[in-house]
């Protein structure tokens, strides 16, 4: 019988077990990125090529995790990794705007083409669904509940944005305008958002709460995702600590963290 190591936070990003695949993948990605650069393709495509090189290695890693720990841990790992990357995207965007002082429209993160209303909408619903599954599957500490609440609110904001986006496209179409995007309209929170401009809140303190109704969209969504990433990380860390502690207390392996195998 072999007791496999407990699932820890570092397991999510520890790719030493797939280092060869990772190295090869990233190298190929870099070569393709350089080729893309010679073709004068946009910087985001070049960045995407390098990032794409990580995907095969991470897929192998995820498959291994699935075999060792089952679907629940795999899903948790994928969510933490994906949300972490998404958070970095928003951090990069924030740095581009506030530190590098890039123009607003240019500060679109690493993969700028993904900065689209429907991508944000789809992404947030995906996070909400996965988070709900994880909670149902046992992720139920206080940070997890907060994270679920945060995700519901964030998804509601993106649903509101998506509705406005589609309505604006429809209104543009009725004016005969087809080639103009409605990307980037203010949402519920932030500068020029619903709270800041609605007749309902007009002249009340609500419409001028620092940050909530004054921050630009880029900042609003940076904070949405910073909160989400932080809460998810805390929820995961707490859950793993509890489960690993429980594992230590009980000699009998009954947790999903321990797999009994026949020694060959």
């Amino acid at each position: 019988m072999t007791t496999i190591p407990p699932f820890r936070m570092r397991t999510i990003i520890d790719l030493r077990d797939v280092s060869t695949t990772l190295t090869v993948g990233v190298l190929i990605g870099c070569v393709v990125a350089v080729y893309a650069a010679t073709l004068k393709m946009p910087l985001w495509i070049q960045a995407a090529c390098v990032i794409a090189g990580v995907i095969p290695a991470y897929s192998v890693h995820a498959l291994r995790i699935f075999r060792l720990y089952g679907w629940w841990f795999t899903l948790l790992m994928l969510l933490v990794a994906a949300q972490g990357f998404h958070g970095v995207e928003h951090l990069v965007q924030w740095v581009q705007y506030h530190v590098l002082r890039w123009p607003f429209f240019k500060a679109s993160g690493i993969i700028s083409a993904a900065n689209a209303e429907w991508v944000h909408f789809g992404w947030n619903w995906m996070v909400l669904i996965i988070m709900s599954i994880l909670v149902k599957g046992g992720l139920r500490n206080r940070y997890a509940w907060l994270m679920l609440l945060w995700t519901v609110a964030h998804t509601a904001e993106h649903t509101f944005l998506m509705m406005r986006y589609l309505q604006a496209l429809s209104a543009l179409a009725s004016l005969g305008v087809q080639n103009v995007s409605a990307q980037g309209l203010p949402g519920f929170f932030g500068r020029d958002g619903w709270l800041a401009t609605s007749d309902v809140t007009r002249s009340s303190f609500v419409c001028r709460v620092p940050g909530f109704t004054t921050a630009v969209r880029l900042d609003v969504h940076f904070w949405w995702n910073a909160g989400e990433t932080t809460l998810l990380t805390l929820a995961t860390a707490m859950e793993l600590r509890v489960r690993n502690a429980s594992l230590k207390r009980h000699a009998v392996p009954h947790s999903p963290l321990t797999v009994v195998t026949e020694q060959v």
Partner: peptide
Amino acid sequence: QSVTTMAR
């Protein structure tokens, strides 16, 4: 910031 105004 209504959709109609923004579209115009």
